[in-house]
Amino acid sequence: MRMLSYSLRTAKEILRDPLNLGFGLGFPLVLLFLLSAIQANIPVSLFELEMLTPGLTVFGLAFMTLFSAALIAKDRSSSLLQRLYTTPLRPADYILGYMLPVLPISAAQCVLCYLAAACLGLKLTVNVLWAVLLLIPAEIFFIALGLLCGSVLTDKQVGGICGALLTNLTAWLSGVWFDLDLVGGAFKAIAYALPFVHAVEMERAVLVGNFGAIWPHLLWVLAYAAVALVAAVLLFLRQMRRQ
């Protein structure tokens, strides 16, 4: 009950911010339409809907990190969290109250991307449903990253680190915009040591029904999600004690 009240508040605060809606839901759609238009004129296999749409659903999750981190950092700086720490809420209520509402928002963003892609010609099959479901570990990774950043950064730092750095990292190291083989070397090795490209490749495999190819990508994403979640919980508890 207590956690639900807090979750409801988190959802309302995120969804009522017009910038969140513009960037989180609108920006991936704009990119989808724009790159599809480019692809129609100058065919690039990377920008075919079966390749591009899964990539955009992963890229869009970087904004979920930004939303969560910005909300938590703002709650810390405005003393709202300090007020709430004097109430009977338990640490688990805060952590779940911040994380759970972002999951359906992330899933909605993913569904919107696929619906928009369907308008552009993507064939909607049961694989789309699997793609939405198998994106959950990546969603947990990005949301946990938001909890982590919100626990250690100020609201101004969140804008720079999550808004600029993470979105760029997700864009450059995910293989959404260009084939990582074109760069190769250390760049590719770094990209494959991080979860972004694994999430994208897993989603691409699922969308075309090649379920055997989700390994080892799913394991990479699950491992990163677990590590990010544990680190986020520990750092959130640390800032709670420091308050």
């Binding site: 009950m1 207590r2 639900l4 009240s5 807090y6 409801l8 508040r9 709430l84 109430t87 009977p88 809420l89």
Partner: peptide
Amino acid sequence: ALMAGIHG
């Protein structure tokens, strides 16, 4: 309502 919910 948020504060009321938090207090159960």
